[in-house]
Design a protein around this nucleic acid. Structure first.
Lengths: 223, 223
DNA sequence: GACTTTAGTCACAAAAGGTGACTAATTCAT
DNA sequence: ATGAATTAGTCACCTTTTGTGACTAAAGTC
């Protein structure tokens, strides 16, 4: 990330990094280099030659120490004049990381989505775009698993989906849909979480087991 | 559109204009200004200040004489060095127009998607991106109607969906799904199309009649 | 041991979907 | 004019999927 005195003719790459922090989603912000009171989405001015997604992945590396488990371009943003860089066009990406392995480098912090810092109009659009992209992908690909550690309980998975879809799901329906889609497979481990019966741990099922099985629309399920 | 001798530091806006030509989809191409034997997607170098979608809409105006009935950004493309402009980044849009009202300005021609002219790698990615975007939107929003004139028969609508989804649909299922979603309403006109019983004309139903009704996934219907 | 809490399963009713067969209105051939 | 062919439109029946409450299981708490 270079400061705003740099040449403006190029484009910036910005990334909306999302994680599931306990009971709510959170987005990563970086302290502004010029005004230490302000926060901004991580960004970097891209050099012409590099592929956009490499730049984005490297940017995540810089702020998190490791690459995202999933990343996708949201689009290009040019409306609204103010941006941390002076780039007249910015390409935004959305990335997911499981919260367990995500320890931000100094100067970077997770903010719950319900309580974001003030942003430039352009970066605010990016956050909205990220939300839309996640919602849209959610019923096309099993991206929720990118927010979880390698093994998890089905209750954790259901709570995550409830968080992402902002809606309650019925346990039996949820599990039946999971089974139909061959999305997960049980491990032989169990986890006791304080009170109540221990839960079996599952892992995301390798694709090959899913041949010929239809996808699932968890977003259509009722409570 | 300026020729490639112009400055290269800015970005280009490119548009993949799609229409339904009889029994196949078609994309609009412009004869290259430098090499009259080559074809390219319509593009233009954008000036910093303008909103990207205004630029795209104006570009469609220029090549078609009227704006698209629907347009959406596909994303930014930077990989692959060759592009008609020398812009190091291009923002692509996908637009839809009904074929009836679409008469390209001289130098622009529709090419069936099965038989496209040779393209730069970057523009080829854009065409693929357009296909993906259309497929993705198709089951989220009723964009198919943007390829049809204001009134149409249900058979025309079904054939269009079969074209877009590249799969045959069963008549009764298709109509039942349409009814459930309140997507169309009958007019009191009928059209006789040569042989066979005349078909009733329908129009796209205003949104307000659709309150509280769920969407339909035509892509899930079987033949 | 009784009660509470969370996990996991079942079974039944209701809704949605797949499909062939039917009726209706027109043109074309004889 | 009659009937075959063609396209539109609807129905009815069966199968599959989904919504949902109630049930069993295994732990902790008092």
């Amino acid at each position: 990330m270079r400061d705003r005195s740099s040449r403006s003719s190029s484009h910036s790459v910005d990334v909306v990094l999302v994680t599931a922090m306990g009971t709510e989603l959170a987005i990563l912000f970086t302290r502004s280099t010029t005004d230490r009171e302000r926060w901004a989405l991580p960004w970097k001015v891209a050099q012409g030659g590099e592929a956009l997604d490499s730049t984005a992945t490297r940017l995540v590396q810089d702020v998190l120490g490791e690459p995202p488990t999933w990343i996708e371009q949201i689009g290009a943003f040019a409306d609204g004049k103010r941006h941390p860089s002076d780039a007249d066009i910015s390409v935004a990406f959305v990335g997911l990381v499981p919260h367990e392995t995500a320890s931000p480098r100094p100067g970077n912090t997770w903010f719950p989505v319900a309580d974001l810092p003030p942003l430039s109009p352009r970066q605010r659009s990016m956050v909205e775009g990220a939300t839309r992209t996640i919602q849209a992908r959610l019923d096309q690909a099993p991206i929720a698993f990118h927010l979880l550690p390698p093994t998890f309980t089905l209750s954790e998975l259901q709570h995550l989906y409830e968080l992402l879809l902002a809606k309650r799901l019925h346990k039996a329906s949820f599990r039946r849909a999971l089974q139909a889609a061959w999305l997960v497979e049980p491990t032989d481990e169990w986890r006791s979480e304080g009170r109540g019966r221990p839960a079996q741990l599952y892992r995301y099922a390798p694709k090959k087991k899913r041949r010929g099985h239809r996808g699932v629309r968890f977003d259509l399920l009722h409570p």
